[in-house]
Simulated scan of single mutants.
Amino acid sequence: MRSKEGDETESRSLPVDLIIEILTKLPPRSLSRLICVSKLWLSIIHGKYFNDLYLTRSSTRPRLLLHRYSHDTRSSHYSSLSKNQLSLVDSVTLPGLQISPPVRGLICCVDHYSSIVVIGNPSTGQFLTLTDVITDQIFFGYDPVNDLYKVLSMNFVHNIDRSVVIEKSQVLTLGGGQESWRMIECKYPYYPGTQGKCHNGVVYYGAWSNLTDRRSVVVCFDLRSEEFSLITLPEDVQIVSYIESDLVSYNGKIALVNVSRNCEFDLWVLMDVKRHEWSKYSVVVPTCDFFRCRGTIETGELIFEQLYFGDQFSILYYHPEQDKARRVDLDRSGDTMSGCRKLFLNHVESPIFLPRKFIH
């Protein structure tokens, strides 16, 4: 058995560039074990340069992330799926139903029963619990300028006339030295109608400015300035409901899509944020009754998930330019869970280790 000094000497005998090259080819769960090899390997794996390099390479092979919620245990299960491996292998189990889409490999979810907010890394199986928060809605994003992850927490109340008042808005910066929730101001009354979608340092989400007539807008939260703004939707375009409406990524842009039950889908793509310019893309997809559009992947294919399911869960790939569709039935062998399911696109494997200072 080698001593720790021997391990350290052996590690240092390899060029650092070669060690980094080897480590970037390994899955994140292996990296979590290799930090014990030596202090050098620990510093490399926890270093910003290595994390950025790993994420850059991982982004060239994005994956699907399937979220499954169990009503029995009130917990969420996440499975990372490649194109060639469409079987369910749980990566991490977290409390809560409401989640934000993955951001650079991390996810955020909230359990309203116990007021627990959790940040998780499905690639490593590690998660942490955020403290001191009671929330109606959680949004999660990444500020690329300052290299910071942030969580936005919102609380709402309704007036007698069904108008909305934001009771409290809070932000927490993950690992940024600001270890408590900070109050911020939002001047716009609204109630969220979709999940959030982080794009270029801004979290976008659909909302209703009034619950009586459901006037629809898109809210923008700039993660760097921590300021809100609103984008108007085209006339007669509405957010239907939290279940049937969503913001997705369409060829690198933000798009609003509503569930269709007749195989016809309209995607309203945000072409210019400042001018509030939208373009309408209509597609007719064969054999997609009761499917929900989740956006596009790097191949240009639109991905649809099965909205209602029994013993089977299916994913539909459709290429608009080629007018070709293929349906993939997920292998659920060994999967005994019943409950909600939702698919997220362009998930990347991340080696990031979450700071212990936020963990109970």
Rank of each mutant, 00 (worst) to 15 (best):
I107E: 00
K168F: 01
S229W: 08
C108D: 00
R12F: 06
I359D: 02
S180E: 15
R332H: 07
H67E: 12
K274E: 09
T60D: 10
D236P: 12
W41P: 08
R12N: 15
E244H: 09
Y188E: 09
Y49K: 15
G6D: 15
S75G: 02
I138D: 00
T299F: 14
I22L: 01
K150I: 00
K357N: 05
C340T: 15
V218M: 08
C293W: 02
N200A: 04
V165A: 01
V259H: 14
Y205N: 03
D7P: 03
A207C: 10
V348W: 00
S30F: 07
M1F: 11
L233E: 03
D213Y: 12
D266Q: 01
I44T: 03
K324L: 14
K253S: 02
V171D: 02
I359N: 06
P189K: 04
I352W: 08
H67F: 07
V269D: 02
E179N: 13
V284K: 15
Y191G: 05
F139P: 08
K197Y: 14
H71F: 06
Q312S: 12
Y191Q: 10
N200W: 03
R182P: 07
Q312A: 11
P286D: 07
T232M: 12
V151G: 00
V269S: 08
H347A: 03
R182T: 10
V37L: 02
S91N: 14
L66M: 04
K280H: 13
L106G: 00
Y190I: 04
E244Y: 13
K253M: 03
P355H: 01
K357S: 10
T24H: 06
C293H: 06
S100L: 02
N84R: 10
P27L: 00
S163A: 08
D272I: 09
